[in-house]
Design a protein around this nucleic acid. Structure first.
Lengths: 233, 233
DNA sequence: TATTATAAATTGGTTAACCAGATTGGTTTG
DNA sequence: CAAACCAATCTGGTTAACCAATTTATAATA
């Protein structure tokens, strides 16, 4: 067999191709939830790809909760039913790469919630962590250094304090992409340093006081320019 | 070397162990954004694990945007800076498995947004897809069959219509887990069929009319019992 | 016949050898 | 001295052979 090195995009295409193949296979064979898929070897042969690629793709579908593989036993269709599975696989195949606008829109949505939940649920330990993150942010800004990372870490500390592991996970997923785009589009203007510190401080105080309304308002103010940047340009 | 088969949990432990090792390595060697990590072979030898495990872990960290690997070149620290990287890695290591409550709380948050955005942005094509999903849901319910999947697919159709790929992706991530827990806890009572159809219909109409306020209100009504279930029990 | 014991085949997981593109250091050449 | 060239080396990606747990088929036994 000819060996070929693929670029990142070709790699994604290959994955999508295998996903579509698995979807069709499940449909044609009328596999129900809990049924076993053909073995990885069979699949790789049938699809004309390497077993490693099949394994990677299965891992991806496991991440989305569509398949489950058991060691020394087989790979199984998850308990979500053929209809949902079909729909989800099609959605996954149609997923576009996230654009900056959708990232910011999502971040604002998530954080207006995390800040309220954090105000309700934060423990003293959470407060300490947030305060530490806030301090290192202030230090960087006052030294006139770039503080994008410390900025985001403060927000992640809030996400942790909201005591919702799912929202927390989603914040983690979008944070690196946010950072990359921030630096790409130069969203953060350094001149606003003291103002940003004030805003962070206000958010922290509101969470400390467990004032959910104020926490949300302060976060809104903090996001004001980001929001403008997202929708005006 | 002794060969050992690991359970799912031991596997996760192994991954977390490797993540922690990579984190420490980056810290000790003071690697900056864009710097190259030691090769996979080196890492596997240094950490005392197989190269395959190292590759899996790197893939995971790539998913979170912390590392980037280039074919025939190496694996590189992403452009998010050491501080953010450290914080994110620690967060990833501390991530708990999502509990039902956090899933429902997140779903409500996301969907109250998707429904408003869908009302604003839906195309005619989106409407057709939503209507199709709605029809197959009605058919199932009227035949007194289980319609959890069709239910969720209608909601995913709304998510698609909201034209925000990031929110859409997050809906996809939580949907299978929601379905599993629904069936696990028997949240859906079949008796409520006609009522649920009415609610879905109302949501669809509001989106069709591009009435964002009504769309949100209808979704809130639809989630009323789910909300109660999430917070009372 | 039903049940248990046993061996063969199948499975996902693991490992190590191999591939071709990328990098690097030294050499030649203008 | 600088730039172009080339071969040795290093890299992530790929492949195929191997491992042990599991499942299935078969045989022995009550």
């Amino acid at each position: 067999m000819k060996l070929e090195i693929l670029t990142r995009n070709e790699h994604k295409e290959l994955h999508n191709n295998i996903i579509a193949n698995i979807r069709d296979l499940i449909n044609n064979k009328n596999l129900e939830p809990g049924d076993k898929l053909p073995s990885e070897r069979m699949l790789s042969e049938r699809f004309g790809v390497s077993r490693g690629n099949v394994r990677e793709t299965i891992q991806k579908l496991e991440f989305y909760g569509i398949l489950k593989s058991k060691p020394q036993s087989g790979t199984f269709v998850a308990d979500i039913g053929p209809v949902a599975m079909n729909g989800m696989m099609n959605d996954i195949l149609g997923l576009e790469d996230p654009d900056f606008k959708s990232l910011v829109e999502t971040r604002i949505l998530l954080e207006l919630k995390t800040v309220r939940l954090a105000a309700q649920r934060r423990t003293n330990d959470d407060l300490k962590k947030m305060e530490a993150a806030l301090e290192s942010y202030k230090e960087k800004v006052l030294n006139n250094e770039d503080a994008v990372q410390e900025d985001l870490l403060f927000h992640l500390a809030i996400a942790q304090a909201c005591r919702n592991s799912t929202i927390n996970r989603m914040m983690l997923i979008i944070t690196p992409e946010i950072i990359n785009n921030f630096e790409k589009y130069h969203v953060c203007d350094k001149n606003q340093g003291p103002k940003r510190i004030r805003e962070h401080q206000d958010i922290f105080e509101a969470i400390k006081e467990q004032n959910t309304q104020k926490a949300k308002e302060m976060m809104k103010i903090h996001f004001k320019e980001l929001y403008k940047y997202c929708y005006n340009i």
